[in-house]
Design a protein around this nucleic acid. Sequence first.
DNA 1: CTGAAAGCGCTTACAG
DNA 2: CTGAAAGCGCTTACAG
Lengths: 320, 320
Amino acid sequence: VATVSRVLNNQPKVSKRTREAVHAAMKRLGYTPNAVARSLSRSRTDTIGVIFRQIASGFYADVMCGIEMECRARGLHMLITTSDRSAPQRLYDCDQMGEARVDGVIVLDSTMDRETISRVRSFGRPLVMIQNRCGEASASTVSTADEQGAYLALKHLLSLGYRRLLLISGPPAAEDSSLRIKGCQRALAEFQVSEEEAAMIIGHYSSQEALASFREYRARRGLPRAIFAFNDDMALAVMKELRGTGVGVPEEVAVVGFDGLDAADFMGLTTVRIPMMEMGKQAVGILAERMADPDRNAAHIILPCELIVRGSSGRGHVQP
Amino acid sequence: VATVSRVLNNQPKVSKRTREAVHAAMKRLGYTPNAVARSLSRSRTDTIGVIFRQIASGFYADVMCGIEMECRARGLHMLITTSDRSAPQRLYDCDQMGEARVDGVIVLDSTMDRETISRVRSFGRPLVMIQNRCGEASASTVSTADEQGAYLALKHLLSLGYRRLLLISGPPAAEDSSLRIKGCQRALAEFQVSEEEAAMIIGHYSSQEALASFREYRARRGLPRAIFAFNDDMALAVMKELRGTGVGVPEEVAVVGFDGLDAADFMGLTTVRIPMMEMGKQAVGILAERMADPDRNAAHIILPCELIVRGSSGRGHVQP
DNA sequence: CTGAAAGCGCTTACAG
DNA sequence: CTGAAAGCGCTTACAG
């Protein structure tokens, strides 16, 4: 038994002869190692837990794709769960993940609450947070240059001459959303445009909520000249709403999004592209390093993002 | 130890007093059950393996969402892997899943090869295949009314008066694609339109491959009057190509897809909507039943699909 | 109703 | 280089 184990783990101290004999017997008997037993004795599962806000959304799916690729490359399993649920359910799901003894966790939910995070911390395993650190100093993070991306997007709109801007933000507590707001403020300052020229409504990164807020805003204040939504889902929903109500995009209202989904490409939406797959890969990379060496310091990776200009932002406002 | 186990599993033969004492001690010590050990002794992991063709694609992501929801509802973990890889890599990934001792497997890849499937069968666990049974008589299946859906789609185009049709199919070996071809043939027969009026190119369910085939077809034979692509990804790619080259959709070429992605809604693409989440849920449902009772017969579920008419198919060809 | 004991299938010092 | 033995943390008959 011990020798078989050594052969399976490619340990050096086995004679060529027995090694071959073992391989032959394994083939003959159709033997498959039992990873559960291995996990128990090694107290290591080679499995990472991934907590997403939701699955069926372009952004999360793309990041997950990167995570999956890198897991495969490193021989890791992935256990996934979704966090867009009621608080008790979410805590329960996290506990389940903890009981499964994952070796590390990736959280991808910029709206994640503190309680859930602290539950995840209680696993005592390395944690990597994507897009939001939730104030967890000891967690590693992978994010994108949110401030800069938003700055570029708003600068783009401002330099085309648009004023009367409308920003559609994420949830107030989301770190990436706050950073994007900062980027917008920087652009406004640079163009010496007062912040009154840029109204803001909260869209919670949800196309439905963004749409509801937008309709309300529109009823009260009329149409803005340009809209910058902090993700593509919201931008696309608003763009569809505008066109559906006979408003020309970009002729009457210019629209810019954030993320770089395929759907944005299809729809000709100007956006800020985040390297989603790369984020997923990097997250697995730094997680695996901390799993191998738990004393390693938390790493913080910030990936660049890029403004992609398409039709929805138009060629600029004709100055009077 | 035994008593603690009984408490954790809510077994009846425990006095209220000890039960409470155990709970108190658990809380005090911050005890978390070790699911790995439980799996080893029960030889059951409460985990299902899910093999997708790819993750970052609307169709798969939506089905996965349904799978995840149902897994949560039933207390199952899910281990996922992607099958859109080289054959050796794919086999290796499946072996890894087998070693992890999943209790059951869901395969969602209508292009899956026989060898991989037989490897998955060798786990000796229940298997549910979504959209394609790959000739595995003993596997349960969940699919949609492919023949009927395609029939409705083509009938829609034919009844609008379009002729000179172009079908863009999936891979020849994919069962759902074959069924859709049958549905198209039925519609053609019903309209007494010869099959020459409906050319077919193979798009392999891939927007890139479909686009390449389409360009080649167009160069050789010119534009058709209407296109029916067997999934939305291909339909959207072709629609974008047409508009990008100055061809009006639907004025010059009508386009219809299949799947019912959100992107199709955004783009105003007429399509056949498949209940993707429901497919995922049902797949977990019948898998869990077979996990509980392995002698149960294979189940075969066929969910309805529905034609959603939007702008891309137009109001019909003006008869000369 | 409760506890001691064997067993799930590995890994890993420990002898030989 | 190889095998016997203990141990990973549960579950489950088996006694009491």
